[in-house]
Amino acid sequence: MGHLFYSFFKTLVGQPVTVELKNDLAITGVLVSVDQFLNIKLDNIKVVDEERYPHMLAVKNCFIRGSVVRYVQLPAPSVDTALLQDAARRERQQPATGARK
């Protein structure tokens, strides 16, 4: 599954996203890059609940380790859901290298 998400997020580079972390922090920013571990780099960030996290006010960009992400809110017009379904189907039907034991 890793590659589908990676492939998907690549198309969202430059789009505004909101990343919700497992510690309930939610950060909105422009997606700068994503890697195969779904680590995320954001620019022009803004914490959703600034009153609760005032220490984040001064932070302008960030790197988020993929494992701490709970949700990513996406801009709907930038997502081709039909294509995403197809991509999921493709990924299911062609097991990657060494998948089957």
Partner: peptide, 10 residues
């Protein structure tokens, strides 16, 4: 095969 979404989307 491995980058289907990105390729087709683009």
């Amino acid at each position: 095969a491995d980058d289907f979404y990105c390729q087709v989307y683009t």
